[in-house]
Design a protein around this nucleic acid. Structure first.
Lengths: 263, 263
DNA sequence: CGGAGAATTGACGCTTTTCAAATACAGTGG
DNA sequence: CCACTGTATTTGAAAAGCGTCAATTCTCCG
């Protein structure tokens, strides 16, 4: 029944992840792009299952995902785990640790992963020399927080079936915005156990719920590949609200204000 | 049984909320403080129950809380509600909407509230003319996101009893960091219904759980006032991990780098 | 004094978990 | 090629946690 597992990366890859990410929030000039390209090119690869960050461990860099999926998680002292986020290409991982240089979360590679390493000093220079890019980063972070809040609403107030539906729709739209989703088939390298930890459910209940979704003909999950068979029905079922994921951008007026202030 | 309700503000108030907030993340120079004071002084007051922001409504300002409690929430289409955050003095409310000028959340006053209004243009000017303050804002936002992730872990993986314990400890520590908590008595103007919506539970289950906590002698909740009778026991019960709320600060080295880059 | 919202409690039912076990599948070594 | 082993997948029955329904008391406020 199961096809390809984890590995590979299967088509989710961005060459200039930070440009893509900030480009979703703000129109980038050629200068901006050049400035972003002047950042370090240090690339790291992690195999599926490898840890990018460990809760409590020292951390002195931030990663920007180029390819693959990363899961960020927190642990309770008795082993219970909550995956707080699935990071996709373009996403920044480990941002909060810049404050305290100690990671507050685990991050591990769900598929084979390629990242770009960003050092704090580089980020600081970037924000100082190109404040509007710093603002773009701030806004991108604020959008991430907004998505996180929606996930909170999912886990706090949606039933298992709705939660899964919502996650699938969200994932589909995120990958689509990056240009990384084929028509209705997308890379989804998440084991059932990870899915359970992300949805605040047990593995067993994930199986049961997934089967209900499958039998309704809404999705098909085959190994690391997810087929969305009826997006509209999924949206309805998951009570999906487009509001928080709409590709909101910094209006041009604000952008000009930044340029003025810079002089 | 119940004492004072909502209103009043009962001692939770900051005169320079943004200074206090950023001061938790970075050591502020006299210049920094002066720069922050040059921001607008427009003050708004909301009575308990009033709406600061409405989901889907246009939004062109950000609020910084001076006094009182604000609850930020999201709604599902059928009326279910999830409170994503209790904002306390110093907290910034409505930040994410700066990107799209449409609020993705409701914010309403849980007690009588005083806020300072920040206009986007001011923020942009601030970040452009004093990049390290922009960075401080970015870091403060990242810390908020970290706290949000911990709440996600609460709702996804903690039992009702643990959830409440964790919330009480978190609140106590947050107010303490602001210098707004008396020894073991703190302002907690949250109705049981709001508490339920914040914890992903029903009102009735909040009562049940609260009663268990009270009968164990760990806390006493009387109207809008919460007494913490055994903080250590609460921490243990709530599996509270100090990691994510530790007063992490931007190290001086980074700070100097910002100053250099600015020249 | 009457009405509205908040606080509180009891009984019952549904969702999800826990415990237990069986089947399928991939890689390993003989 | 085939047992052997570990992991993923699937199913069932029972229990627990939490939700729903219903009713009552209390408090504030007009």
């Amino acid at each position: 029944m199961s096809g390809t597992r984890g590995g590979g990366g299967g088509g989710v890859r961005l060459d200039r992840p930070l440009e893509t990410k900030l480009g979703l929030v703000m129109t980038l000039s050629d200068d901006d792009r050049a400035r972003l390209r002047s950042l370090s090119e240090t690339e790291l690869r992690f195999r599926r299952g490898a840890a990018l960050l460990s809760e409590g461990a020292e951390q002195d860099a931030v990663y920007v995902l180029k390819a693959g999926w990363v899961g960020c998680a927190r642990h309770l002292s008795d082993g219970r785990r909550q995956i707080t986020r699935f990071a996709l290409p373009g996403d920044v991982v480990g941002f909060d640790a810049l404050v305290q240089h100690v990671s507050t979360q685990d991050a591990s590679a769900l598929s084979d992963v390629t990242v770009v390493v960003l050092r704090p000093a580089e980020l600081i220079d970037l924000a100082a020399s190109a404040p509007h890019l710093g603002m773009a980063l701030l806004w991108a972070t604020a959008k991430d927080e907004s998505a996180l809040a929606e996930r909170l609403a999912s886990i706090g107030r949606r039933f298992a079936l709705e939660r899964l539906a919502h996650l699938f729709v969200e994932t589909r739209l995120r990958l689509e915005a990056l240009g990384l989703a084929e028509e209705d088939r997308l890379h989804f390298p998440v084991t059932k156990e990870q899915l359970a930890d992300a949805m605040g459910l047990t593995t067993i209940h994930i199986y049961r719920t997934l089967r209900r979704l499958t039998e309704s003909g809404l999705v098909r999950l085959d190994g690391a590949w997810l087929e969305i068979l009826d997006l509209e029905a999924l949206k309805r079922l998951g009570k999906f609200d487009d509001l928080y994921i709409v590709p909101g951008r910094i209006p041009e007026a604000s952008r000009r204000a930044v340029r003025r202030a810079k002089d």
